[in-house]
Amino acid sequence: MSGFLVKGPSGPLVAPLGSSVVLPCYVVEPLPMKDLEVEWRRTDSAILVHLYQDDESRPESQQQDYHDRAHFFIDQIQHGNFSLRLDNLRAEDDGRYTCRVYISGSDESVSVSVGEDVTLNCSVNSHITPEHIEEVSWKKTNEDILVLLYQNNKTLPDSSDERYRDRVEFFTAEIPKGNFSLRLKSVRTEDKGVYMCQVFAGGLSANATAVLGRMGES
């Protein structure tokens, strides 16, 4: 199976109290290290167990209970292995843990004249296969408005905020190539702002930001 799918254990892990256990989490192929973030959380409470961000482990972000007990295999992260070792197991460690991998794209600033059409770019690595794409959303983040939603292999135009309905579209033929760019038609002055594309696929969340600014008159 190809694609950047986050893999974990097939069943529950059992280990004696006081011992160590490895919680497996890895991707099929290595991801780019730039803008990579890995989060381990307790699913039952959303407690942050450990965080990898900005090319390093972030122990200061951990819940106090996991200080000095939860560790990444730092030398393995570049190979797509985000497994976590939990030491000195306690009875209260029993529970469900979730590993989430985020890749954020770089900001892109776009200028356009009022009345013109504009493309806001969003693409993720093409190794993600179409059948694993669960959801793609475009939101205007400074106003928290849903611009366009794609789920279950189709666009849901009724989900768009009324200001964007009938003015936005995906390049549908490009989606299998990992291209989720958005076409915004007949740009208005009030369209100016920050837009985020977020892709969920096989446990992987990726996002990219586009800034629509420097409006001119056509």
Rank of each mutant, 00 (worst) to 15 (best):
R69Y: 05
Q63I: 01
R100F: 01
L89W: 03
D144H: 12
I77Y: 02
H71Q: 11
R167N: 03
N179M: 09
K185F: 06
Q64A: 13
V27T: 14
D55R: 14
R85I: 11
V6E: 05
H79G: 09
R163G: 10
L51K: 03
L184A: 10
N207W: 00
V114A: 11
R85Q: 15
P59G: 07
S10K: 15
V110K: 14
M33F: 03
F4A: 10
Y97R: 01
V49C: 02
D166Y: 11
S57C: 11
D55N: 04
V21F: 02
R183W: 07
Q78M: 02
K34N: 00
E134D: 15
L120W: 04
S113K: 11
E29Y: 15
H50I: 10
D75T: 07
Y150R: 02
E92K: 13
K34C: 00
Q198E: 15
L17H: 08
D87R: 14
Y195L: 03
S123L: 03
V6W: 02
G18M: 10
Q63S: 14
Q64Y: 05
L86I: 13
T209M: 12
A91V: 12
R41A: 10
T172A: 14
P30F: 03
Y26E: 08
Q198L: 14
D68V: 02
A208D: 02
P30N: 12
R96F: 12
R188P: 00
K177I: 02
S113E: 09
G213M: 07
D107G: 12
L23I: 05
R69S: 05
H79Y: 13
T141M: 14
L51Y: 01
R100N: 11
D94E: 15
D166N: 14
V28H: 11
S218F: 09
L149I: 08
P12K: 05
Y164P: 04
V110Y: 02
E190S: 11
K34V: 00
G213P: 01
H127L: 15
E29D: 12
V168N: 09
A46E: 08
E108D: 14
G216M: 06
N179K: 07
V22P: 03
S2M: 06
L23W: 02
Q76T: 08
D44A: 14
L5E: 09
F72D: 03
K7I: 04
G115K: 12
L31C: 08
D107L: 13
V147P: 04
A15G: 13
S205P: 01
D144P: 04
G202P: 08
S104K: 06
I175Q: 06
Y26I: 02
Q62Y: 04
R183M: 15
G18I: 06
A208N: 07
R183P: 05
G105A: 05
E135S: 10
G3T: 02
N125R: 12
S111I: 07
D93S: 06
P12Q: 06
R183H: 15
L149V: 04
T189C: 07
S181F: 09
L146F: 04
Y97P: 00
E116P: 01
N81W: 09
R96M: 05
S137I: 12
C25P: 00
D94W: 01
K7N: 13
L146S: 09
V112C: 11
H67T: 11
S123K: 11
R96T: 15
G203K: 00
L156W: 06
V49L: 06
N88Q: 15
S45G: 10
K7Y: 07
K177Y: 11
L36D: 00
Y164L: 12
V168M: 06
S159Y: 05
